[in-house]
Amino acid sequence: MKKGILLSLGLTLVALIILGLAVLIYNDSSKNIERFNTLSLFERLNAEYLSAEKGISRIFNVNSNVNLSLNGFNITIQDAIPNNYTNLKDKLMLFRDYAGDNFANTKITLSDTTNSIKFTVNPHLINYTQIPSNKKIIINYNKLNFLGLNFNFNTGNSTVGTIAWQEFDGGAFPVSISIANSTGSLIQDSKNIDMTDEWEVRVNGLPGGEGRIKVEFDNDDKEITIENDANILVNSKTEILLNKSDYLSLTDPSTKISVNFSEAKLSKVQNARLLYSYY
């Protein structure tokens, strides 16, 4: 009799354990639904963000008249002073309207609709700005992450210039400048610039009457200004030499991409990257 009762109890216990495991599996499955919903929303959010970012990058490449490239840890920006960004801004605005109207969750915000352009080099926080109306390129640098700068320009009538600014061990920056035209050398100079120096180089005698190109180094404001004061178009090539980092990206701070899934209270807002790589 006792044996029978023990057997019954044993069987019941085993069955209850099976039931307990089944309930656990069921509960885990219920959590899996929530996990899946959340993960798939993140996937969608990221996919939509990346597609909008790639769209902006493509619009930029085709309409900006600016050529961007990455070479190891160096970023090269080929631009013109003054450039005309009207077409680029128009196309970006159309893209913003299209993304907003027909792509319900994706909203592209342009915080700056003027015709200037600005790139931020991340993670080094170096800014490259051109304000075409002022015919200026301004580079704000962060000395800790900045190894140097090569700036080349040509005026299309054989006047070419090179400005090389490289850091060396002593902490100061030796700058060399060399400008020549078909008749010979206009400027050949070099100087060490420390943290307090300012240096202005003017290249006179360019077409356009009293035209000149002015290069100004301001270590207090950590700013290099290249101004085209001549009545000509100057093609420029700026190479920014950087320290090693895990990633390198060039973003447009005036173009923010915002993707929202309001029902799930999920959103992603970030500046559009125009160029990036991971190491």
């Binding site: 996919a47 493509r58 792509f103």
Partner: peptide, 9 residues
């Protein structure tokens, strides 16, 4: 079902 925005140039 998903979506992708793209630019034709």
């Amino acid at each position: 079902a998903g979506r992708r925005l793209f630019v034709i140039t």
